[in-house]
Computed example of a mutant assay.
Amino acid sequence: MHKIIFSIFLALLATSVQADYSRLYFDHMPASSAESGDSEIAYRVFNRGADNPKLLLIMGLGGAGAAWGDAFIQALEFEGFEVIVIDNRDTGGSEMFTDWGKPTLWWQLLKYELGFSVDAPYTLSDMAADSLAVLNTIGYERVHVMGVSMGGMIAQVLAAQHPERVESLTSIMSTTFAPHLPPPTSVAEGNLRSLADGDAEASREDAMRNRGFYPESMERHLMAVFASGDRTKQVQTIRKPTLVIHGSEDPLIPPEHGVHTAEQIEGAEFVLIEGMGHNLPESFHPQVIGLMSEHINKVHSP
């Protein structure tokens, strides 16, 4: 398990920056904020419309809303969706937990593997509650929910714990975090070894921030995943229409994780996208959005 987690943290540093990315459109939309407990959660709403299906997007590890990029958001708008994009806590314009500090990963990993609780400033349930706070602030009772990677985990928690607020679930390149599932492939480990030091590393971090990722928050997000642990039993309680999408070439969370997720949810559909890895490059947008649109249109009630 420690191999999976440490790879998730570091491989993102090597793979999260893509050339086909812009955030000018995203940044043009002013952010609003919602109160979630003691935290402020920033969000943006695109393509508002009373009759437009409401779609909540939840980004993955260390990712703010900007990480979705203009192309993905605009493609969803073209399909007629009203798109709600949140900054996960500890990213973007949302509450930062810098004062909590950074966890000592090796120690927390050891505690987790020995069955002890880890130290975490928040859990995936808290992050799901952030989404509820945004929906409450906007005044929406139910939405369609889509999450990628850790965002898929949060979306699963939201569908399991608050089914009355979820119309449908789309979980992409995510996992239940069951311990028997396979670790990252050698490709992901190769990405780890390619990480540079010095100026190159600083340049990579700047690029990640511009792309909407916050390296200093990734370890705390990991602790949220640790603290939540294996969620298989929880995922088995989901009764919402569910689509699970995974890339055949995902080196970070291998496809077996997606298969396992779909198997736990009654009636869930699993789709393997050939050639897709652990990202959403623009070349795969038509296929991913087409699948999700078809899924949502089957269940959407205006």
Rank of each mutant, 00 (worst) to 15 (best):
Q18N: 07
G92S: 09
L135G: 00
I8M: 14
E219S: 10
Y122Q: 03
D119P: 00
L272F: 05
T242A: 12
A160G: 11
E167D: 10
T15Y: 13
R204H: 06
F78L: 11
P163F: 05
E266Y: 04
T175H: 10
T185I: 05
A75E: 15
M153P: 01
G147F: 07
I138D: 00
T175I: 06
F9I: 15
A11H: 14
A50T: 15
M150T: 12
F226C: 13
L135R: 00
S94H: 03
M146P: 01
L57K: 03
P184W: 03
N279D: 15
D199A: 15
A129M: 05
T98Q: 11
Q108I: 14
M276F: 04
I8P: 00
E294L: 11
G275V: 12
V157C: 02
P163W: 06
A66M: 09
G80K: 05
I273A: 03
A227P: 01
M59H: 04
A14M: 06
V145H: 09
H221F: 08
A42I: 02
I4A: 05
V118H: 07
A120H: 05
T232P: 01
L222V: 05
A19N: 12
G37M: 00
F46Q: 07
V235L: 09
V118S: 08
T104V: 14
P53Q: 12
L252G: 01
D51Y: 13
R231G: 00
I296Y: 13
E167F: 11
D70R: 11
S293L: 03
P103F: 10
A64M: 14
S16N: 14
H257N: 13
Q234R: 14
R220G: 04
S217V: 02
N88L: 03
L61Y: 02
G69A: 10
V166A: 05
K233L: 14
P215R: 15
A75G: 10
L57I: 03
F78V: 13
P53H: 11
E141N: 14
H162A: 15
P183K: 14
A155T: 01
V143A: 13
Y214S: 08
S171Q: 03
E141L: 11
D38I: 09
S7R: 07
S174M: 09
P281E: 04
P302S: 12
Q108N: 14
G277H: 07
P281Y: 11
P251L: 08
T232N: 02
V271R: 15
S16Y: 04
W100Q: 04
H257K: 12
F81M: 02
G190D: 11
M276K: 04
D70P: 02
H2P: 00
T185V: 14
E274F: 10
A155R: 01
Y122I: 02
A155I: 02
Q236V: 05
V299L: 06
L12E: 08
G275T: 11
E77A: 02
A160F: 12
E141C: 11
R239T: 13
L56H: 05
V288L: 15
L109A: 13
S125I: 08
Y112P: 03
S94N: 08
E282D: 10
R193E: 07
Q234I: 13
S174T: 15
